[in-house]
Design a protein around this nucleic acid. Structure first.
Length: 410
DNA sequence: TGTCCACTGGAAGGGAGGGCTT
DNA sequence: AAGCCCTCCCTTCCAGTGGACA
């Protein structure tokens, strides 16, 4: 008997699952008509071969910023083609490309077709990369719209030098011109920029408000029609999805993921209909998957710090201070015979764990007894321990009890 | 009101690792 | 092979800080 004999050839619940994924760009974006029109007006001069203003777009995650920019970019390039104007829309996510070198090299490589001419991912001096990028763009004799998504991540990591370079690029270009579209979900981001960069980058500003529950419901309904077979989605499940996402600052991306996972859960149960319980299950599954993934992919030192927090909170009811976590960390390091990092570095790792949502760390002042951070795990300790001890190296620490926390118990 | 603790978090810089150029 | 550049991870140094306590 074949192992796949029992698997149905019919799609089950889904017709086109892609419609619920974050990379999908639909043909219409409900409740973003105003923003789309705005962006079209700003970028329209490009079609007449005139320069247009740089744009800065703000809005929380899942408010349709990226989808709007991609949709407008796609139509603009198409219209350019029809009218015989070369318009290229280059999209870059600065969470992935987060260095000056990376942005310049990727921009150049987007247009370079031959391997031997491409900019290597490291190795060249920056001015050489800039020069190659400039030449490449100039040889296009057209317009480039560069979209820098999550641009705040780029600036946080590499400063605003690259933005300055890009905003002044037009002065260096003879045959082509470039327009920058910066996208950020941090509203105060521009305040930290060099004033020259700020004024050049935000010639036009747009703000994307969060969706409310009824708007989310409408968006989900439209996508569900593409994604699911008819009648697969119940009213209750739809409402619950939009309500849950509306609670999380109106995040449409989350709502769509919730719907997709709910569909997968129902499908796995062999059902052809999605009910509210599937949405609830999906909500829990997404969160567990996120945590599992986050812990498993931590570098070893971060895992060790995380384990120190878990072992520390095992032994003590009160929250741990940075100093206590570091003492446990030192013990664990010596048990594994690895060189411990400095406390300074460990504080940074704790901040990273905090940002990943794996621990809670807040700065408190204990007056005479100093200023420190109070740290506690945000995950069920047994679950965290289980995931951490899956690491070969850390599995040796399963029975290890730190001395420090034993002292604290008395 | 001033002191002092236990850090926080910024800045600078070292060095390993990846890759290019000559 | 030597010299250079950039990024990443880390250390070292140190000014700054909130609030309990004397």
């Amino acid at each position: 008997m074949n192992l796949f004999e029992g698997v149905s050839t019919l799609g089950g619940i889904f017709v086109d699952k892609e419609a619920l994924r974050s990379g999908y760009t639909p043909d219409t974006l409900p409740h973003r008509e105003e923003q789309i029109e705005n962006l079209v007006t700003i970028l329209a001069p490009v079609l007449r071969g005139e320069p247009c203003s740089n744009v800065f777009i703000y809005g929380k995650t899942g408010t349709g910023k990226t989808a709007t920019v991609k949709l407008v970019g796609r139509d603009l390039s198409e219209m350019g083609l029809l009218r015989g104007r070369g318009i290229d829309c280059v999209y870059m996510n600065c969470e992935v490309v987060d260095t000056q070198y990376g942005v310049l090299a990727n921009l150049a490589n987007y247009f370079i077709r031959t391997w031997q001419d491409r900019v290597p991912f490291t190795g060249w001096p920056l001015d050489k990369v800039y020069e190659r990028m400039k030449q490449t763009l100039d040889s296009l004799m057209g317009t480039v719209i560069l979209v820098l998504d999550e641009v705040d991540k780029l600036v946080a990591k590499s400063g605003d030098d690259v933005l300055y370079q890009l905003t002044t690029l037009n002065d260096d270009l003879v045959n082509s011109d470039m327009t920058l579209v910066g996208v950020s979900n941090d509203l105060r981001f521009a305040d930290f920029l060099d004033p020259r960069v700020k004024s050049r980058l935000s010639e036009e500003e747009m703000v994307f408000p969060p969706y409310d529950a009824s708007q989310l419901r409408h968006i989900l309904m439209e996508r569900a029609q593409i994604a699911f077979v008819e009648e697969a989605l119940t009213e209750g499940a739809l409402s619950l999805c939009s309500a849950m996402a509306a609670q999380e600052h109106g995040d449409a991306r989350r709502a769509l993921t919730l719907l997709r996972v709910a569909g997968e859960v129902a499908e796995r149960e062999g059902l052809e209909i999605i009910e509210t319980r599937h949405v609830r299950k999906a909500g829990m599954k997404i969160e567990t998957d996120r945590i599992t993934q986050a812990i498993k992919t931590l570098p070893i030192q971060s895992k060790l710090v995380m384990l120190s927090v878990v072992k520390g909170s095992d032994a003590s009811a009160s929250r741990l201070t940075t100093g206590e976590v570091y003492e446990i960390y030192e013990e664990l390091s010596s048990a594994l015979a690895i060189m411990p990092l400095t406390q300074r570095r460990v504080t940074d790792l704790i901040s990273e764990l905090d940002m990943l949502g794996l621990v809670n760390a807040r700065v408190v002042s204990k007056g005479r007894y100093g200023r420190t951070r109070e740290i506690e795990t945000r995950i069920i300790p047994d679950k965290a321990r289980f995931l951490l001890e899956e690491d070969d190296l850390l599995s040796h620490l399963a029975e290890f009890k730190p001395k420090v926390s034993q002292v604290r118990l008395m």
